[in-house]
Design a binder for these strands. Structure first.
Length: 598
DNA sequence: AGGTATCCG
DNA sequence: CGCTCGGATACCT
């Protein structure tokens, strides 16, 4: 067997993975609590995209056809969920809610309904606070600078289910694993607390996994669902890296179930392990028996290892160290960090799919307009924020956090149906992209007007390049995306984001009367009174004195082929955008009297 | 850069 | 498998 590359397992972190139960259905239930007790399905086009657990009990499933769903459960309540706004907003709210309760700022979203938290710092802090002589009445401090905030817990036992269910007791472990056991134990209680907060204050239940890395925490959560949690317990591995709970746990999964091993990779691994070369090319539907290839089958296959996997999975288009990376995943090894929460998404897109022809040019134009208008509204919601400073006039202004530099149009042509049979492949998407025209950043025109202009000046020409036929297109999907986000100067200045800095400052103001007593082997302080002192100190104003500038369609300096009224001025100091006539007043606000660059 | 592929929910 | 309506990232040119 090939070497483990001394991929030394990093067991120093405590990662908690949240998966909100039946998320779309839960959002709708929270909007209308009467729906909580009935079978509820969320519909997009002809499909049930998710449903609550009552509906699952009655036989509904994800990605089920609506017709089938109605047949199986005629009294199900079906809610249309093609507009994702409410789900996106709820996801953001929950993300912020959890972020306020952890210390590291390391919170990573996956889709709308999953979140990883890196809680290592909170666990270490509270591990140091443990009183060995009074574990039963421990206190978990959830605010670094306020010893009174937190929750009571019994530190003698892990909270909730574990994997394995009969995990070794702490006493049966070696010294290193005893430490790990304690950290994960604290993690299980923190997870309980966060789940309770989420449910009691926000109305969302979640399925949670606690482990030492992202992959393991995500997978182990699924052991007990819904509305529960599972902790992956030591000994994770023996001295040789084998025979611990990690291999025991990973081994039972189908390879394709491991996050990061998608359909294509799983197929290649499957072909290798079963000794079957893919001799059949396109078109033939292999409706054969789906054979299970587990992680164990792969991991213990002869000759397997990072190099062999590189051989199997590598090739043109494949990621560079794919073999080593997949070998790591099969062994439950994952050193990827939980990324910090981003202020700005890297792309925003709006799409719609069409069951029937888009017959005419007018119909295509209308769809492009609808998508463009929704995209522009999304840009206003997702990459703008209220200015912190209110101008002396008292009028609150909005500023762009980022400008997408690129506009992308994607379509999916429906494959033509042959007369001889149903031999159709290629459900491919094709796309064309180009510079985002500057006028879409205007705040003086309505999104509707801007969308109309965007269609005429940019989207229709792009569509013409994608589809050279004059008519008769048979599109099953159109997507319009704003990508290639360039963060505004005032925003990118400190990458942590100013609201986080402000949050810390506020916390310090409230808590400055406390002194944290550290490395004291006693129970944490209790009963300290909260000070009401809240000095309303002004924010330190850090100005980056970069020149203000004007952008044109291509993001370059403005030239004169646009009408004056369309020009938008961006302040390089505060990032505000405004019509040109307002720039002089705005510069005076900053105390700048000189001209802007020409 | 633009275009495609693969991955995730 | 696809189907939805997104999203992230990597590789290719």
């Amino acid at each position: 067997m090939q070497s483990d590359r001394s991929q030394k397992r990093d067991e120093s972190r405590v990662i908690i993975h949240f998966d909100y139960d039946a998320f779309y259905a839960s959002v709708v239930e929270n909007e209308n609590p009467a729906l909580k007790s009935v079978p509820l399905a969320i519909q997009q086009k002809q499909i049930v995209v998710t449903c609550n657990y009552e509906a699952r009990r009655r036989g509904l499933r994800k990605l089920q056809l609506i017709t089938e769903a109605k047949r199986v459960c005629p009294d199900a309540v079906i809610v249309l969920g093609e507009d994702l706004t409410r789900f996106r907003n709820a996801s953001k709210d929950l993300c912020n809610f959890l972020r306020e309760r952890i210390w590291s700022g390391r919170l990573e979203r996956l889709g709308f309904d999953e979140v990883w938290l890196d809680c290592t710092d909170m666990i270490e802090f509270n591990y140091a606070l443990l009183n060995r002589n009074g574990l039963e009445h421990s206190f978990f401090c959830t605010a670094k600078d306020d010893p009174t905030r937190g929750f009571d817990y019994d530190a003698r036992a892990v909270f909730g289910p574990t994997y394995p269910a009969d995990a070794a007791s702490e006493g049966a472990l070696n010294e290193e694993d005893r430490l790990l056991h304690s950290r994960l134990l604290l993690g299980s209680h923190l997870a309980r607390y966060l789940r309770h907060e989420l449910e009691s204050q926000q109305g969302y239940t979640a399925t949670v996994g606690i482990a030492t890395n992202k992959t393991l925490s995500k997978l182990v959560g699924n052991v007990n669902k819904p509305r529960n949690q599972t902790t992956l317990m030591p000994p994770l591995a023996d001295a040789h890296g084998n025979e611990g709970t990690v291999h025991q746990f990973m081994d039972m999964h189908d390879v394709g179930k491991v996050p990061g091993i998608g359909f294509k990779l799983a197929q290649k691994i499957w072909a290798y392990v079963l000794g079957r070369e893919a001799t059949h090319d396109e078109g033939l539907v292999y409706g054969g028996i789906r054979e299970n290839v587990t992680v164990r089958d792969v991991r213990l296959h002869e000759h397997i290892g990072p190099d062999k996997l590189e051989e199997i999975l590598g090739g043109p288009g494949a990621q560079k160290g794919i073999g080593g990376r997949i070998w790591g995943l099969l062994n439950g090894y994952d050193d990827t960090e939980v990324s910090k929460v981003k202020r700005v998404p890297s792309q925003i897109s709006q799409e719609d799919s069409y069951m029937k022809y888009l017959h005419t040019f007018e119909q295509v134009c209308q769809q492009l307009f609808l998508l463009a208008e929704r995209l522009i509204r999304r840009m206003h919601l997702d990459i703008m924020e209220d200015d912190e400073e209110i101008a002396s006039g008292g009028v609150p202004t909005r500023r762009w956090l980022a400008h997408p530099r690129t506009l992308r149009l994607t379509t999916r042509p429906r494959p033509p149906l042959n007369s001889d049979g149903t031999r159709v492949r290629s459900f491919n998407r094709i796309s064309h992209s180009g510079p985002m025209p500057n006028f879409v950043f205007s705040l003086t025109e309505t999104p509707s007007v801007l969308a109309d202009r965007l269609v005429d000046t940019t989207l229709v020409p792009m569509f013409r390049k994608l589809h050279t036929e004059r008519n008769g297109w048979n599109l099953s999907l159109i997507n319009v995306a704003a990508t290639n986000m360039a963060e505004t100067a005032a925003n990118s200045k400190d990458s942590e984001g100013r609201d986080i800095g402000r949050m810390f400052r506020r916390q310090e103001d409230v808590l400055k009367d406390f002194k944290v007593v550290e490395s004291q082997d006693t129970a944490p302080l209790a009963g300290a009174e909260t000070s009401e002192a809240q000095s309303d100190q002004a924010e330190p104003l850090s100005l980056s004195m970069q020149g203000a500038h004007v952008l044109n369609d291509g993001g370059d300096w403005l030239d004169e082929d646009q009408p004056e009224a369309e020009q938008v001025y961006y302040c390089g100091i505060c990032g505000s955008s405004m019509p040109n006539f307002a720039t002089d007043a705005h510069n005076r606000f900053h105390g700048i009297t000189s001209e802007r660059p020409s």
